[in-house]
Amino acid sequence: MAWHDVASVDEFEVDAPKVVQVGEVPIAVFQLDNGFFAISDVCTHEYARLSEGFCEDGKVECPLHQACFDIRTGKALDEPAEVDVATYPTRVDRGIVQVDL
């Protein structure tokens, strides 16, 4: 496990995640009301990047087939996905959002 830089806090916009690639793993980092949350950027249904999906109220929708995930918990909320996405810890270190993997 190690902390990886994502972006500085002021680069984030509401409902627009930042994507960071850690090794083989693409991670989408979202700013919500109560902090930063990181999930795997790949839908568990078929291959699609969740960061390209519609995002609202702490949920993100897959852009291909509209599977919906809770950004805070990674939980799959709606068909066609049934498997949760992985979540990763985040922190802010001297103004830089970081993700732990």
């Binding site: 390209e52 999906g53 519609f54 929708e61 852009p63 291909l64």
Partner: peptide, 8 residues
Amino acid sequence: DNGREVTP
């Protein structure tokens, strides 16, 4: 190629 706009 613009699934983000489906729900809106």
